[in-house]
Design a protein around this nucleic acid. Structure first.
Lengths: 220, 220
DNA sequence: ATCAGATTAAAACAGTTGTTTGAGAGGTGT
DNA sequence: ACACCTCTCAAACAACTGTTTTAATCTGAT
C-alpha cells in the first residue's frame, strides 16, 4: 500500500512539506476531507505522523494548503489568454472547451487530484470553497461568459448569456463528474485522445448551434 | 441536534426500521458513507445504537437499504410514461427536462437526499452504484436516448445521439451538482418556481436548437 | 568543538468509531 | 400461569481518529 519514494533528503523543510501536500491531495481526492486520515497521508508521503501538525497547524491547515496549490494550478491554465489569442469568439469557445475538457479528463488519472477534490467539495462543501471559487473558478467563468456574450450578441449580464454559459460548463464538467455513471451506461467507451477530440468537437458544435439560433432570435 | 420524533410505538419492527432508513439517508447525504456515523443516524432516528446492527447487518447493510429505497423512488418517477404520453419528441424532451430538473432542485431541500447521495457516489463510488445505475439511471438514460434519436433522425446507437444525450443530461444535473459553485458565481439567484421554469425552458431550447441543426446535417 | 535552531522520530494522549454483548421488556400463543 | 419470539436498551469492546509530548537528530554559524 505504501509506495517507495524518491528518498527524502533529511531535514529539508520544503521537500517533506511538498511531499505531504502531494500525498494529501491524492488521499483527500479519494476519500474527501473527513474520511481521509492523516496517517495514510503521512505513510504515502513517507513522513512521520507529527509532520502534519508541525508543517501545517492541523489537518485542516494541510487541506487549505492542498486547495491553495489547486488554485495555483488552475490559475496557470488561465482561460483568458486562450480566449484573447483566438481570432473569433467561435474559435475561442472551441479552445476553451477543448482545454477544460482535457484538464478534466486527465484528472481521473495519476497525480491530477484537483478535480476529484472539487467533486467532494460539491457533495460536502468546506470553508475553503469560497477561496477556490473567488480565485480560480470565478475568473474563468467570467471569461467564458464574455465569449458567449459576443457570440449571441447580448450583454454578459443577460439571463440568456448566463444560462448558456452554464449549459457549456455543464457539458464539459459532466465528463469528469459523472464518469462513474458514464462508464456503466456506456461500457465500451475509452477515453483516448481521439475520443476527447470528438467530445470537445461535439460540445462546441452542440453549443454553437444553439447560440447561433439565440443570436438570430435576439436581433430579430 | 437531535430532533423530536413522532413517538415510536414500541416493538414495531417496520417503524424503527423505516425511521432508520430515513435518518440514514439524511446523514449519508450530508457526509457520505465513510464520514457518516451510526451514532448520529440513530440519534436522529430516536433509536438505540444497536438497532443498526439488529435490523441491518452493519453500517453497509443500512447503506444498501438506503440506496434500495433511492432506487424505488427513482423508478416511481419513470420517464418512460412521461415520454410516451407526449405527442411529439420535442414535447417529450421538455417534459423530461422539466421533470428531472425539478426532482434535482427539490433534492437540496427537505427529505430529498437521494440526489445528494449520488453526488457522494460520484466523488467516491461504492459497490452499490452498479445496482443504482442498472435499475434506476440506465433505463431513464435509454428513454432519453430514444427521444433524442427521434429528433435528430439517427439510430440510438449513433455517436451523435449518445453525445447529445449526455449534453442534455449534463445541463440538467449541473443545477443540482454544481449548486455550491453556482450560488457563489451567481449570488442573487433564487430557485423559485418561475426560475426553474425558465431554466427548464432554456435547457430545452438550447438543446432543441442544437439537435435540429444536427438533424438538418444528417439528412443532407 | 560548541551552541542554537530547525526538523524528525516514537510513544502516548483523550476522544470517537463500528460492532458486540447480555440482560430485559413487550406481546402472543398455549 | 408459563414459555417463546421479537425487539430495545445500556454498557462495554477493540480499533482507529487527530493531536500532543518528549527526546533525538541533523545543519550551520560561531
Amino acid at each position: 500500500m505504501s509506495t517507495a519514494l524518491p528518498l527524502p533528503p533529511p531535514h529539508d523543510h520544503d521537500a517533506t512539506r511538498a511531499r505531504l501536500v502531494e500525498a494529501a491531495g491524492e488521499v483527500f481526492a479519494e476519500h474527501g476531507f473527513q474520511a481521509a486520515t492523516v496517517r495514510e497521508i503521512c505513510a504515502r508521503a513517507g513522513a512521520n505522523i507529527a509532520a502534519v501538525n508541525y508543517h501545517f497547524r492541523d489537518k485542516m491547515g494541510l487541506y487549505d494548503a492542498v486547495l491553495l496549490e489547486s488554485i495555483c494550478v488552475a490559475k496557470m491554465a488561465d482561460l483568458r489568454q486562450l480566449a484573447e489569442q483566438s481570432q473569433t469568439p467561435e474559435i475561442a469557445l472551441h479552445q476553451i472547451v477543448n482545454g477544460m475538457l482535457r484538464r478534466m479528463a486527465h484528472a481521473a488519472e495519476r497525480g491530477n487530484w484537483h478535480v476529484r477534490i472539487m467533486a467532494h467539495e460539491m457533495a460536502h462543501p468546506t470553508s475553503g470553497l469560497d477561496r477556490v471559487v473567488e480565485l480560480a473558478i470565478g475568473p474563468n467563468y467570467s471569461v467564458l461568459r464574455g465569449v458567449i456574450a459576443q457570440i449571441v450578441g447580448l450583454p454578459p449580464h443577460h439571463d440568456v448569456v448566463r444560462l448558456s454559459t452554464h449549459s457549456v460548463i455543464a457539458q464539459v464538467v459532466h465528463w469528469a463528474h459523472a464518469r462513474p455513471v458514464i462508464s456503466r451506461v456506456w461500457p465500451d467507451l475509452e477515453m483516448t485522445d481521439a475520443r476527447l477530440d470528438q467530445i470537445a468537437r461535439h460540445i462546441t458544435d452542440f453549443s454553437l448551434a444553439a447560440l447561433r439560433t439565440f443570436a438570430q432570435e435576439s436581433t430579430k
